[in-house]
Amino acid sequence: MYSALKNSFAVVLLGFLSACSSSENRLPIMGERDVITKEVDGKTVTDTAYYQIPPFQFVNQDSLPVSDKTFDGKIYVSDFFFISCPTICPKMKTQMKRVYDKFKGNPDVMILSYTIDPVHDTPPVLKEFATNLGVTGNQWQFATGKKEDIFKTGKSYMVVAQEDAGAPGGLLHSGHFVLVDKEKHVRGMYDGTTEEGADKLMGDIDRLLAEYKKQ
């Protein structure tokens, strides 16, 4: 009896431990979620629907379409910036370049930077900026389009992007990097203006890649 108890205790403990470690390894899914109840084989089951980045359609630095489809089956990091922004954008691009250099050539990882100053940041201007930053190929997409659409897309990533006369350059945007998984769920938000923020992001990309490897 005693030993049986001990065994079951050990099993429970083990189960507990593994539950703990697996939830520790998995990144959280951010944003609002809906609980859906549906009928399966006459039984009611509940399912959780997590928030997903809605579809979008813009133009990239090569004047080619870039949309949510471009990122199907990819993990990607997104941010909002504009080229002539003197303050936080250079910091963000410094950090994003570190992320790019680390995951360069990895077919599962992409980067998507939206400009919030589309009048100035046209595809050729973005192309030149990318080239000067040392970015080639299409792993890092720079998106431009209608301002209202970009601001709306900003909201869909849960970040701020808007006009503001008081902000440097007349545009206000957050310095966040947003990590999106292959199911278009938001899995993390990071301070894109600091080395620590980018370090945390790179660690989390590795964890997310490991999650998909296990499946």
Binding site: P86, T87, I88, P90, T94, T131, N132, L133, G134
Partner: peptide, 15 residues
């Protein structure tokens, strides 16, 4: 430092 970096090395062909 946001452009020229803390170590003064600049950023690629931008700064």
């Amino acid at each position: 430092a946001n452009c020229h970096q803390t170590d003064g090395k600049g950023l690629e062909a931008l700064y």
